[in-house]
Amino acid sequence: MSRIAARFASLRAEGRGALITFLEAWDPDASTSLDILRGMPAAGADLIEIGCPFTDPMADGPTIQVAGKRALKAGANMHRTLALVRDFRVGDNATPIVLMGYLNPILSYGVEKFCTDAAVAGVDGLIVVDLPSEESDLMVPLATANGLDIIRLVAPTTDEARLPKVLDGSSGFVYYVSITGITGTRTASAEDLAAAIPKVRHATDLPIAIGFGVRTPAQAAAAVQAADAAVVASALIETLAGTLDKDGHAQPDTVRRVLDHVRALADGVRGARKAA
């Protein structure tokens, strides 16, 4: 069983939903990023999503755009992102790691080599934002052969006729983009989620994570009540960004403040008892 499937199975046994926390690789530098990554599981992250920096992140709002810029300035690239995962795996062989990014840096690395190297580094799943199901034949077979889950985005614009096509070939979990918009901007209402999630649930047995616009412990709690997991990204990066000096450098309290924020979100998620 993959780490992702195992983690969702154990959380289901506990009767609670998952907190998926996000960090951008090498934001604002390699060692801070590794410290945050290593601290996240103990602070309450159940799965971790690592953003792969790209110059042109077309689905991301200003917060993640700037995080990517900081990371690239610090020297981030795909090799170094995979090295970050390898370093994390030295001390943690259970927490699932999902890479989220855009296609071009992967193409540049070489799709086959990327899938092999990512699996060896200890990556469990891939979210490639600009690789819709229509184009995914260039990656799915290679990812699957290396035991990597392909996690698909489902959006409010994805209608029920299209849904099976989007889910075909996906594994791990389904990432429900709760708003029509970019990351870190608006937030879906509980009514929106209550209407949308059952339709996705009807089409798949995979766990469903809700992301885009999940910012507070209360929103994370609402997300795990409506679905199986809450993804928090921009809000955590805002906390990180708030600790940096004017040149974008980490300060002594940067890691602690981000992990404190993770703890608060985890309290929200763990306090939300799932309706049976």
């Binding site: 600009d130 229509e134 698909r152 985005l153 959006a155 209608d159 983009v177």
Partner: peptide, 12 residues
């Protein structure tokens, strides 16, 4: 060519 866009845009 092709259609390399996020799922939100794909239906559009």
């Amino acid at each position: 060519g092709g259609r390399f866009v996020a799922e939100t845009l794909m239906p559009l």
